[in-house]
Amino acid sequence: MSRKIAIVEDDPDQRENYADAMTMHGFEVKTYPNRREALKGFKEELPDLAILDIMLEDEPDGGFDLCRELRSMSKNLPIIFLTARDSDIDTVSGLRLDAWDYLTKPVNLQYLAVRVSSLFRIVETLSEKSETVDKIYRLGDLMVDQQSMSINWKNQPLNLTLTEYWLVESMSRHPGHVRTYDHMMQVTRQSLVEHNTINGYIRRIRNKFKAIDSSFDSIQTVFGVGYRWKS
């Protein structure tokens, strides 16, 4: 049974391209040009995953609104935001919309497919509730579950997006070694990422850790180069 993906994007060309790509990867795709039609569609049948553009026709924050409504229908439905600017990422974080991930345009369709697959795997893991021990490793207070793509710090779960998870996982896999910006760009699986974008991710990750543990300082900045996980 193929997974159902809803794509809400007002630009028809992009929408169709996403749909084609997702279809090619074997997903069942439904497309909506705006919030109202999407909501109508969701009420008929909930998708397994939603890809939302933030700006929808005449609604600058249509994607955010849709996300809230979708979240009220299903708690665990993975949502991927397509954003055009870094400030939107902060908004996603700031509004605590519980989106699972976000991507900045221009979107690399390969990466999009990877993301979608990863998110479905997480959903599967969560639903099966089976802890496969070999997929879990610990590093001090850090616990990384590669199966469910989740991270615990001092036994408390962190609410990280997929990209954030990938970054933490990448750093913690080689503690004490510098992860350069170039490397981290690959990790984010986005086509174009500036240093500032990486800095922004790290800042948000640190904040999430600090929300649990204010003395958190395991992510070290290597100025001009990248970051490293303090071993």
């Binding site: 060309d13 084609d20 090619m24 055009a84 600017r85 221009p106 979107v107 369709l109």
Partner: peptide
């Protein structure tokens, strides 16, 4: 510049995704 980048991003995204799909197909 910001607005311009924004507006250009969408068509660029169309070109990009179209090229990708073309390559895949």
């Amino acid at each position: 510049p910001d607005t311009l980048a924004h507006e250009l991003n969408n068509p660029l995204n169309v070109v990009n995704s179209s090229l990708e799909n073309l390559g895949t197909q």
